[in-house]
């Protein structure tokens, strides 16, 4: 589905990503994790076709740079990290915009209720997007990405700013999507428990790719963050010993 060979990205003269090599298969759930400034968001943007790159990046058998925007949007949808909209569109209109790629006059699109239902916000349909909460807006954005009906959904820290209930619901929604999902995640426990593969980024390089729920992943993040972590009950990753001494 996605194959990167020596993928590098420069912004201006600064090398942001250096020689990344990885393969992502259909319907895998990938978490990208790493310290601030590791290049996670840049990786997301280049996978979304927003940045020029060096090396090879093959999506569905074709080089990324050769895609037309319309064709790429049928394959990949990118849900951004921080999104605030001051505009007075209803949730319904907003989600219908996702249909643009199949129906240019998207306001005539029908059958978007199922996407709202899928992320549990059917009750918000008539609300204005500038009057709902951050967590609700995040779900609206995911519903819009679903309406686009891509094969790959990319999410940049989807659960930041959300309360525990919203995080739980959103994670459940994401994991049950019958699509390839690539998420930037800061919560190591969520990455460990929910995703099938975890890519650890550090200093613009790929530190390694690990399976979910593996001890190797916990060892790797211990080295990256220089905190010794252990696994409790096979479920929780916690720092060893008492928190503060």
């Amino acid at each position: 589905m996605i194959e990167a060979i020596d993928l590098s990205v420069k912004i201006g003269k600064k090398q942001i990503l250096k020689n990344l090599n990885f393969v992502i298969h259909e319907r895998e759930k990938i978490a990208i994790i790493g310290p601030n400034g590791a290049g996670k968001t840049t990786l997301m943007r280049v996978l979304g076709g927003m940045l020029p790159y060096e090396g090879k990046l093959i999506i569905n058998g074709k080089e990324m740079s050769e895609y037309r925007r319309q064709d790429l949007a049928k394959l990949i949808s990118y849900v951004p990290q921080i999104f605030y909209t001051p505009y007075t569109f209803t949730v319904e209109e907003f989600v219908k915009m996702g249909k643009y790629i199949s129906i240019r006059n998207w306001w005539n699109a029908e059958g978007i209720d199922r996407y709202l239902d899928e992320v549990g916000i059917l009750n918000l349909k008539a609300r204005y997007v500038n009057t709902i909460s951050g967590g609700e807006l995040q779900k609206v954005l995911i519903a819009r990405a679903l309406a686009q009906n891509p094969r790959i959904i990319m999410l940049d820290e989807p659960t930041s700013h959300l309360d525990p209930k919203a995080v739980f619901e959103l994670n459940r929604t994401i994991i049950n999507l019958e699509k390839t999902v690539i998420s930037v995640v800061h919560d190591i426990n969520a990455a460990f428990n929910l995703y099938s593969k975890i890519m650890i980024m550090a200093n613009g390089q790929l530190y390694g790719i690990f399976s979910g729920k593996s001890k190797e992943f916990v060892d790797a993040i211990s080295r990256i963050y220089q905190i010794e972590y252990e696994i409790l009950d096979g479920k929780f990753i916690v720092p060893k010993g008492p928190y503060f001494q």
């Binding site: 979304g48 927003m50 949007a73 990949i76 686009q148």
Partner: peptide, 11 residues
């Protein structure tokens, strides 16, 4: 925004 518009398929 440009990136969102692109992601939805706008040239």
């Amino acid at each position: 925004g440009d990136e969102q518009a692109k992601s939805m398929g706008v040239d």
